[in-house]
Computed example of a mutant assay.
Amino acid sequence: MTSERLPPYNPLRFDWERGARTGVHECVFCDGKSAEQIRHILATAQARGAQLLLTRLSAEALEALGGEFELDYCALSRTAILGGLPAAGEPSEDIALVCAGTSDLPVIEEARRTLAFHGIDAPVYADVGVAGLWRLMSVAEELSRFRVLIVVAGMEGALFSAIAGLVPGLVIAVPAPVGYGVSERGSAALNSALASCAPGIVTVNIGNGFGAAAAARKVVAAYHPEISHRVD
């Protein structure tokens, strides 16, 4: 018999002050956590009246919580928000989200909801992969207006270099865990992002939409120190 109960010591040391200290709140990576651990974190946050972002929360884990908490859940990105998203404001003029194909949307949504949780409503430019280069060129002028572009692509990851060669903004490359053969689980896209000869690309780990959004949030804060932190 196995038990999901917490061990007889406190395994959780949540960083409630991270948002005020760094501008990016500590969020809950749920993969690998038991339902009881997630429940304990949510109960603690709820008692504090704090909003909380959860990532990689599976539908099974959500069901195991038994509807005890009011969570804004997105099945596509496997993210949930305790306390709800802030009201949508004007679309950001600093950050845009771009993806090569619809298979990349789970990563895009993780990044988009992370930004929304931090008060940034970033527009999405979807399905502009280089297999139909006209799709990218049709939005290239619009993309050139943004300071930061979070770009998600799988397969060969050619979109990273293509965009970085067209726009003045910083490109944050997120290899998507899609593809097969040599491209399986984003490995080729990761190597493409790291090996790109187009200047102005930085790369996060495969599928790390959250990390890309956190980095973009920090870049924008350098331009706009007045951007408010979400206070727990």
Score class of each variant (00 low, 15 high):
Leu194His: 11
Ala195Ser: 14
Val204Ala: 05
Cys197Phe: 07
Gly186Arg: 03
Ile201Thr: 14
Ala189Gly: 05
Val174Asn: 04
Pro175His: 06
Ser196Cys: 09
Gly181Asn: 05
Ala189Gln: 01
Leu170Asn: 03
Pro168Asn: 11
Ala198Asp: 14
Ala189Thr: 06
Ser196Ile: 02
Gly200Cys: 12
Leu194Ile: 14
Ser192Lys: 01
Val182His: 04
Tyr180Ala: 06
Val204Arg: 02
Glu184Gly: 03
Ala188Glu: 13
Val202Ile: 15
Gly181Ile: 06
Pro168Leu: 10
Thr203Gln: 12
Gly179Ala: 09
Ser196Leu: 05
Val182Lys: 04
Asn191Pro: 00
Ile206His: 12
Ser192Gly: 07
Ala173Leu: 04
Pro199Trp: 10
Pro168Glu: 14
Val171Leu: 00
Thr203Lys: 08
Ser192Pro: 05
Pro168Lys: 09
Ser187Cys: 06
Gly179Ile: 03
Ser192Met: 12
Asn205Asp: 15
Ser196Ala: 15
Tyr180Asn: 06
Pro175Trp: 07
Val204Pro: 00
Ile201Pro: 05
Ala195Val: 05
Pro177Glu: 11
Val182Asn: 03
Val202Glu: 14
Glu184Ala: 13
Val178Gly: 00
Ser187Phe: 07
Gly169Val: 02
Leu194Met: 15
Pro175Asp: 09
Glu184Ile: 06
Ile206Tyr: 12
Ile172Ala: 03
Leu194Gln: 14
Glu184Cys: 03
Ser196Lys: 01
Ala173Trp: 02
Gly186Leu: 07
Gly200Val: 06
Pro199Ile: 12
Ala173Asn: 09
Ile172Glu: 01
Ser183Phe: 05
Leu194Asp: 15
Ala195Asn: 12
Gly186Cys: 10
Gly200His: 04
Arg185Ser: 14
Cys197Glu: 10
Val174Pro: 02
Pro177Trp: 03
Leu190Ser: 03
Pro168His: 09
Glu184Ser: 09
Pro177Val: 07
Ile172Trp: 00
Ile206Phe: 10
Pro177Asp: 13
Ala176Glu: 05
Ala198Trp: 13
Val202Cys: 14
Glu184Thr: 13
Ala193Trp: 09
Pro199Thr: 13
Ser187Leu: 12
Pro168Gln: 12
Pro168Cys: 11
Gly169Pro: 03
Gly200Gln: 08
Val202Gln: 06
Leu170Trp: 01
Arg185Gln: 13
Val174Cys: 06
Thr203Cys: 14
Gly200Met: 09
Asn205Ser: 15
Arg185Thr: 14
Gly186Ile: 11
Ile172Phe: 02
Ile206Gln: 12
Arg185Tyr: 11
Ser192Ala: 15
